[in-house]
């Protein structure tokens, strides 16, 4: 894998329902793509729930905690800040996150060193 950062086209935004997550397989890594609202706001966070070890985070409920966008794991309901990956119930735990952009209706994720560090 090259060291250069590159934006990778993943999926049409229409394939992610508003205010839900969807799991994408990006270079073998399970990434939860979480769409907040009905627009182009999408976050990418690891799909693996660190408390159960199950790959389920994308199936959680999307919401906010005092304005901070978050997703709650469906397993034991731990919430994670979508911007930072920090677990709101246990800030010592932090999940990998990746930059995301939406171009002409396509969701793109920035693969950089951190992804491979995590993967």
């Amino acid at each position: 894998m090259s060291d250069m950062n590159r934006w990778l086209d993943v999926i049409s935004i229409d394939h992610i329902d508003p205010d839900t997550g969807a799991c994408a397989l990006v270079d073998g890594t399970q990434v939860a793509l979480v769409r907040v609202g009905e627009g182009d706001t999408v976050y990418a966070i690891a799909n693996r729930d660190p408390f159960s070890g199950a790959y389920v985070l994308s199936r959680g409920i999307v919401g906010d905690a005092t304005g901070a966008p978050k997703i709650a794991s469906p397993m034991y309901k731990h919430s994670f800040d979508l911007r930072t990956g920090v677990c709101l119930d246990d800030p010592s735990v932090r999940l990998p996150t990746w930059p995301v952009r939406v171009r002409r209706g396509r969701v793109e994720i920035l693969l950089e060193a951190s992804l491979h560090a995590a993967a």
Binding site: D19, G37, I61, D64, G67, K70, S79
Partner: peptide, 10 residues
């Protein structure tokens, strides 16, 4: 207010 959470949505 806000956008909801895993308590109020279900």
């Amino acid at each position: 207010q806000g956008s909801g959470c895993e308590i109020c949505k279900p």
